[in-house]
Amino acid sequence: MNEIKPAILLFIILTIICGGIYPAIVTGVAYALFPKQAAGSFISDKGGKEIGSTLIGQPFSDPKYFWPRPSASTDFGYNSMASGGSNAGPTNPDYLKTVGDRVKALRDSGVTGKVPADLVQASASGLDPHITPESALLQVPRIAKARGISEEQLRIVVGKQIEERQFGFMGALRVNVLVLNVALDGEK
C-alpha cells in the first residue's frame, strides 16, 4: 500500500514535535517562570539541606508529632516510590478491621467523640500531605502532653498552618502535616 511511507514518516516527525520540541518548550518556560514548582517544591532545613517536598507527605507516628493520614503505599506508609491507595472495597472485612484498629489506636492516644474520616481512611496517592483542620486539632492534647507545652500555644501553631480554600471556594480547608511538624520542631 502506498500509504506506508506517510504512516512511518509522519510518526517520526510527530514524535520529534510532540516528544521532543513540546516537552523542551514546556521545560524551558516552566524553569524560567516557575523554577521552584518545576523542581518539586522542596523545602530545606536551616543548613540548606533539602528535607522533603511540601507536596509529598512523610510518615510520622511519634506522639510528639502530628500524625498524617494512613497511607496504603506498598512496603511502608508514605513510600514515594510506590504511590497508590488501598483499593479496599467498602464491605471488605479486612479493610473494616484495619479501620477499626486505626480508630482504636486513636482512642488509646486519648481521642474521644467522632473520628474524622480522613484520619482513619487511607488517601488515594498514599502520599497525601494534608489532613483536615479537625484532624489536626484533635491531636493537640496528645502532642501538648508529649512536648510539655500548652495546648493553647499548639493551637496557635496549627491555626497559622491552616491553608484556606483556593480563591476562597475551591477544594477543602487543610493542614500540611510535614510543614506543620517542621514548624513545631522550630518552636521553643
Binding site: 473494616l96 473520628v115 474524622p116 477543602a172
Partner: peptide, 26 residues
C-alpha cells in the same frame, strides 16, 4: 459514606481513596 465504617465511630463520609485537598466535590 459507608455505614459499616460509621459504626466504628467514624464521621460518615467516605474518604477512603480520596485526597483531602480536592474536597468531596472536587
Amino acid at each position: 459514606g459507608n455505614p459499616l465504617v460509621a459504626k466504628l465511630g467514624v464521621q460518615s463520609i467516605n474518604m477512603e481513596g480520596k485526597e483531602v485537598r480536592f474536597g468531596m466535590a472536587g
